[in-house]
Amino acid sequence: MTEVPRFWREIPQRYNLIGNKCRKCDWINFPPRSICKKCNDHDFERFDLKGEGKIITYTIIRAAPLGFEDLVPYAIAIIRLDDGPRITAQIVDCDSSEVDIGKRVKVCFRKIAEDGKAGAISYGYKFKLV
């Protein structure tokens, strides 16, 4: 079952890739953190990620978790964003054979999950090949 309150809390990062930047060491955290991953400081400013980057590794999902069975085969990639952070996301609108390490990708807004036919729908970021 989709966790509605958790998805609701994460709307800024899921809809608009909003992270935070440590004022002490300039490290960009995504998802935003309350303690800097790099220097453990607590002082942050908002940082809007631009949503472009390249694939640094990927896998093709053929045995999907519950709720994602209809999408197989689909690619999940780790993407190095141009702003610095790495992000894990689905690559859409392509055959899985087109996905490769080093390819440029751009963010898009998609349905992530739904809690059956009667439950809430969660939206957020996925990526497509440029």
Binding site: R110, K111, Y123
Partner: peptide, 16 residues
């Protein structure tokens, strides 16, 4: 539409 597209995702992409 792809299976993860609906009226909301299309509205967001067009509006952006």
């Amino acid at each position: 539409p792809a299976p993860d597209e609906d009226t909301a995702t299309i509205a967001v992409e067009a509006s952006r």
